[in-house]
Design a protein around this nucleic acid. Structure first.
Lengths: 331, 331
DNA sequence: CCTTTGTGAGGGAGCGCTCTCTTCATGATC
DNA sequence: GATCATGAAGAGAGCGCTCCCTCACAAAGG
């Protein structure tokens, strides 16, 4: 009970394999009556091309790997970034007729598998998401020669095109906003310092504060809610008089707000809070969260388009998308 | 500049293609000195098997489609369920050496593409996530004869194994809890009624209330935060004296809490709120949300394992996972 | 001594498709 | 009527792998 082949269709239509192939691939050099004949045979037999056979000869797979290299994948199972990025990229790739192969490169083992998978040319190209500095995967993938784009600037210099949002500008906006609101002791909750987004955001925070001669008050989180809460508790201990906090993402800001509540501090009266990303949840905190809107979905879509362009032989260079401060009631 | 083939390895090692194939596939009937010889040649040349050629003859692809058939994919881009389910399933499949092909079947067009993709045997099996009642995709996929498992019970009878949580039991627990707390006018915010989870949850709500002779107060949402807020506003208008609300998921409960806040109602003093799912965000609301813990990740992992079993020829029948009420401060 | 059995290696057909090359038919041109 | 250009269809060689079959050889049995 085997599926029909090109040859079966050819026999039924009374033409050659070549002609059927031409029809199936939409080549224009087929007379319309013959095309109809072939199409009828295709429909009668329920023929679908065998993708393995096709890919064997064309050396294309029409699929693209989206590799999420996230060591904490076990921890933050409901990370809104994952969902937003994967969905936006998938939509873009699917619209271009490419299949998306999703790989979670959370463990060393998984990273090795991902590299081999790509090296075996199971996919035509790779989109890499969210890498830490020590991650050897980006370089390993680049070495395979497969077209590659990174969602987010890689932590280490690497000859790979990327798309990011304006982390420096966005964070600077956030801190300046707090200064304008008259806040004087502004703390920050940073992300992991081996990630470029975290580096840029804390860098801008320090820069703006030092311009105005203020000192930085820093705690480090890992972009999760719980780490935000812990970092906030730490900050309150370090400097009970702080009157504002800039969290490097909204999830940590949400955690920080819980810690503030528990410590009996009112937001924004006692402590102003600003986040980063503008995830949907930022609208639903109490009070609603002031944050920097980073176009996460658009960034993913842009990464995907950059990669598709690369595949068409177009040149690719880094893209930085603008951010925008969204003032709500937490500041 | 072509990649090395089996034949190149065979030539270099001075053995036949068959032997190399045996070594590469780990067959035991190869003398260890020859195996070493071959492995050296493999490493020297950097050989990796061509998956297309292999799959052409074996008729396996070692990849599995995860199809998220979610019409609202454009709306709730940060749905924690998507992230949790996709990650858990991926982990399970990757551990079994299967690649995950992610397909978003949000539009009719995408659904057609998904069907064709599966019909072309691009994948060995399919895991289907989150379907509405009117969705023709499950039946279409089942008709292709490809092994299929559904994450969540299908809305229509369909001969497909599935894994779900105990929606009826969980919802009943939630409503009984509110009754035990002395609440008398208990409303519900239901999910879309063409989804089995929503049907079961509202069914249990009605059942428990009618047992105690109370009337139901119902509004319909679509499992998003904003729909929860809108439904809550509607409920307050319909029955300003209500003193509790059971939302069919946490996202809607979060929306409902915002609407209550805006209406000047205190939680839980004026209105108790109970959600469903126990997503991480439920810990961070103010007050923390009482909810029914549904093992979303475990459910996805179980679906994946069920499918892998099916692939090994094991029989499969529906699985229902238990739920648990988590009482926090919102009730 | 020859035959049987077992074990490990080689030979080679064939998976289903694409794509180059060749052939053929048609009509235009001289 | 002979020649040539043009366009459409057919032939068939691979793509890189697996797997069945054959074969060589060694050990065991008669």
């Amino acid at each position: 009970m085997r599926r029909p082949t090109l040859e079966a269709v050819a026999t039924r239509a009374g033409v050659s394999k070549s002609t059927v192939s031409r029809v199936v691939n939409g080549e224009p050099t087929v007379a319309s009556d013959i095309r109809d004949l072939v199409m009828r045979a295709v429909n009668d037999l329920g023929y679908t091309p065998n993708p393995a056979a096709r890919s064997l000869v064309t050396r294309r797979t029409d699929s693209i790997a989206v590799i999420v290299s996230d060591p904490s994948s076990g921890l933050v199972s409901d990370d809104p970034m994952f969902s937003t990025v994967v969905r936006a990229a998938s939509r873009e790739f699917e619209a271009a007729g490419k299949q998306v192969v999703l790989m979670l490169a959370g463990s060393d083992d998984a990273r090795v598998r991902a590299r081999q998978f790509v090296a075996a040319r199971h996919v035509d190209a790779v989109m890499l998401v969210s890498m830490h500095g020590a991650d050897p995967l980006p370089a390993a993938l680049a070495a395979t020669g497969v077209p590659l784009v990174s969602h987010g600037r890689p932590a280490f210099r690497l000859d790979v095109p990327w798309v990011d949002n304006d982390n420096t500008g966005g964070a600077a906006q956030a801190v300046r906003h707090l200064l304008e609101r008259g806040r004087r002791r502004i703390a920050t909750i940073s992300g992991p310092l081996d990630m470029s987004a975290a580096q840029d955001r804390i860098g801008a925070y320090r820069e703006v504060l030092s311009e105005t001669g203020r000192r930085s008050i820093v705690a480090i989180g890992d972009f999760t809610r719980i780490s935000g809460a812990e970092a906030m508790a730490q900050l309150l201990e370090d400097d009970p008089a702080l009157d504002a906090v800039f969290a490097a993402n909204d999830l940590m800001a949400i955690g920080a707000m819980r810690a503030l509540r528990r410590a009996g501090r009112r937001v924004p009266d006692d402590v102003a809070v600003v986040g980063y990303d503008d995830i949907e949840a930022a609208l639903y905190t109490d009070p609603p969260l002031t944050t920097v809107r980073s176009p996460m979905g658009e960034q993913a879509a842009a990464s995907a388009r950059l990669l598709l362009g690369l595949l068409r032989g177009e040149p690719a260079s880094p893209v930085i998308l603008p951010t925008q401060l969204v003032v709500r009631e937490s500041s």
